[in-house]
Amino acid sequence: MHPFTLDRPRDLAAALALRAQAGRNDAPAEYIAGGTDMVQLLQEYVRQPERLVSLAGLLDNRIEIGPQGLRLGVAATMAEVAADPAVVEQFPLISEALLNSASPQVRNQATMGGNLLQRTRCPYFRDVGYAACNKRAPGSGCAAIGGENRWHAVLGTSDDCIATNPSDLAVALVALDAAVEIRGAGGSRSLPLVDFHRLPAATPHIETVLEPGEVIAAITVPASSAARRSHYLKVRDRASFEFAVVSAAVALEMDGARIRQARIALGGVGTKPWRVPRVEAALAGASLEPQSLRQAAALAAENAHGRGHNDFKIELMQRAIVRAVEIAGARA
């Protein structure tokens, strides 16, 4: 761990100002909230900030549900949100995704904002023993593309990066049309979560649309009848404390035995939480017959591109969609 100065500003405005002074990349200042990811990155020298700006106590941690939907203060912990009775009742997909993430200890500490901003598990990114990682050291290359890439993405990749976004929560939220409220020195703005993470393209080190000095203030999820008939299916190597190999978040509005509308997002396969509108469109009006589900799910693979070790994910994600839709569809 490199030495750093820990700033504990008294209010959010001061925190924003501290961070805004710094540039966008190789920032000499970084935010820390729950710290479950940041501390690992610091310990392994992946991030080497000069200053750490603590957001502890500066951000909203309330969980509010109203007729418009759900609003999650960004400082709410994973455990608090997962156990909130209203979330469990009205947005079970979110609770399921959270409970399938990390460990109880981590969930007690990690925040909503940190979860959305956690860095990839790509081992080349996380080990400074590797020189080549465009995400960690822009322009240095990508060791994963020709290396051990069974963990990596098959959707949204570029020639510069194939790392996945590891969040389960984000997958569920993207499926539910969630938005993020962003606050900066100049005020607030809101945008759909699906537009929050960027594709790697030629700049994989820039992972979100956050500008320097901006923070996520809250996550909002619109009320929807689909939110209850849902399932978060997580396929992983180990049944707890492990990231997804492939995951599928599915929310359905049914019309009798037919699907009126499906919302589906995938994890573990994309460089960002991956919504699959073509699959959703094919499922609109479809029955829950395996054949029609398979046909629709196949559309998820249209632009998928394996790199060898991760080729299996292309088939696996289609199966995950089918199963998650079946399970959600069978729910009352």
């Binding site: 996380r126 051990e148 404390f241």
Partner: peptide, 24 residues
Amino acid sequence: MRYDDDGQPLTVNFGEYLLPLATE
């Protein structure tokens, strides 16, 4: 314990090197 072709170890923490847990 995975290594790449240059003998660089890839699984150097318990996030990537999986031990069985109570759930397994």
